[in-house]
Nucleic acid binder design. Sequence first.
DNA 1: TCGTGTCGTTCGATTTGACGAACGTTGGCG
DNA 2: CGCCAACGTTCGTCAAATCGAACGACACGA
Lengths: 184, 184
Amino acid sequence: MQQPAPPLATIAAALRRERERVGISLAELARRAGLAKSTLSQLEAGAGNPSIETLWSLGVALGVPFSRLVEPPTSQVRVIRAGQGPRLLADKSTYAATLLAAGSTHARRDLYVLELEPGQPREAEAHIPGSVEHLVVAAGRILAGPAGGQIELGPGDYIAFPGDVPHYYEALEPSWAVLMMEHA
Amino acid sequence: MQQPAPPLATIAAALRRERERVGISLAELARRAGLAKSTLSQLEAGAGNPSIETLWSLGVALGVPFSRLVEPPTSQVRVIRAGQGPRLLADKSTYAATLLAAGSTHARRDLYVLELEPGQPREAEAHIPGSVEHLVVAAGRILAGPAGGQIELGPGDYIAFPGDVPHYYEALEPSWAVLMMEHA
DNA sequence: TCGTGTCGTTCGATTTGACGAACGTTGGCG
DNA sequence: CGCCAACGTTCGTCAAATCGAACGACACGA
């Protein structure tokens, strides 16, 4: 499972990698995480055995989930090509989805553009267990979320919710959005 | 993301839950993990702030992945309102990125909202080999693509291009877009 | 009724992680 | 050039996590 993985070096590498991804200095990250520079310096040097709270605050400050800091990076190289011509999948006149990028069976992530018109809401039944839907509203107003827990969203708003329970989309005005479907 | 979640109580609950699932005593687990009984006792009581190595050895002894001990049960609904969320530092004032969803190490796909102002274009150096960037323009006009092959995009337009070669973003007017970064 | 084993908790001693202050270095600017 | 600010590192100090040992509670047999 995670047998021979000494998390010491992994954490050191992950910290430096993620920090450079965000593009901030060591001192700045320490400030945001509420830590001493020295602590972070030693961590990135591979020395030390940080406490959970310390690592957690770094994860929050970097905006990455905790697991990314402790688990070794996946080294396998897999190329997934962008979808060619967008295809249209429509089942109701008020709802249209355009498939932008379809992941392979090994890396399942699909990217859609949704176009919705007010009127008949779309009720989606549960998908495969473990799937997650990510929605960013580009224009208009949309009521979305798991059945019974819908939330109203406007341009720029983001919502993520489990796709393996019944859920729901309704446009309050002509709208469109970007949807990332994540399958377990 | 994982915002105000103090992992202290989560860990305590997870430890007791997983230990009872395996069906061993506290003393036995401490023995297998190479820890003092007292340490484990306090951890399950919710007191303490364990080090990474301590928690890791418990994960190994319990036969569960590390993340199961630190992350709360499972995903629920998460909303990030426009303008909220962790903002990545802009190396130029014309560029801002907000991280919406960060993939785990096993499914590396990150979702961002980009905000761009006209002016200085953003030149990005190559990322990890095999990475792909997917961009959907929500509003405005953006010139984007690999260096030398930029394409002008308007609202609703989609482009995918390799992220492991130098590439380029420029807003022709105030714009924002949804970016999915896909790491190999 | 002892004696023995294991359970989980509590109590000092010690190792060690985190802090704050200093250091040398680098880059920008008058 | 000097000055200043920020960077990342190193060092001494302090608080805290971990340890080892002892504790009371419970169960099982002799």
